[in-house]
Every structure is written in C-alpha cells, then in structure tokens.
C-alpha cells in the first residue's frame, strides 16, 4: 500500500467522510483464531456478550460464525463458552 507524504495528507489528520473502526480491519493482529462448531453451539450468546469487538456474528437469534476481519484472537469467546459445550476452540492462525 502506498504511504502518503506529509504534503499529500489532510491537515491535522482531519479525514473527510464518516470514518469508523469498520474501515480499519484489525484481523491481522491475530496469532490464534477461534474456530466455532455449529453442532456443539447452544446459542447461549456468552461469546457475543463478552467479545470486546463485535466479531461474533448473530443472525435470526442464532450464532452463525465469527468475523475474522476484526477478530484479534484474544480467546475470550473460547474461554467463556461453557465447559460442557466447548463450541469454540483456539488454533494457531
């Protein structure tokens, strides 16, 4: 990616447009990735509640996957997943 010089950048880092963290994928910070098992999942949403980003994808009242564009691999979801369920496992990325 081209890196801009100081003469090309907007003054004071004031950016035009509605920028948000959505424009800043942080998935490449990850060293481990959570793998979610649909068969084991009971849709308790503990992972969704505890995820510090918003990387647990919910659709129609059910967990449907993990958004790897933003998941930083912190492992909290795997940790809070009830021991009897163990629907999320962390593996090296």
């Amino acid at each position: 990616m081209k890196k801009y010089g100081w003469k090309e950048l907007p003054l004071g880092a004031i950016l035009k447009g509605e920028w948000s963290t959505e424009n800043f994928p942080t998935g490449d910070w990850r060293s481990e990735r959570p793998v979610w098992d649909e068969e084991k999942c009971t849709d308790c949403f503990l992972c969704w509640i505890y995820c510090p980003d918003s990387s647990i994808i919910i659709k129609d009242g059910k967990v449907t996957g993990i958004n790897y564009d933003y998941c930083k691999g912190c492992g909290i979801c795997a940790n809070v997943c009830p021991p009897k369920v163990k629907a999320i496992e962390m593996i090296p990325d």
Binding site: K3, Y4, G5, W6, L9, L11, G12, A13, I14, L15, K16, G17, E18, W19, S20
Partner: peptide
C-alpha cells in the same frame, strides 16, 4: 459533509502530521 476528527495516527503517519505542523 461529515468529517472524522482525531483518528489514531501511529508510527506510519503521526510524524507526517507533525511535519505539517512544523511547516
């Protein structure tokens, strides 16, 4: 005309913005 003020500006760009200020 929405704008974003005060974004995170790390090793890649902070220096360039300070250079602007010096200029």
């Amino acid at each position: 005309n929405p704008i974003t003020v005060g974004p995170l500006d790390l090793q890649d760009y902070y220096f360039e913005h300070k250079r602007q200020e010096i200029e």
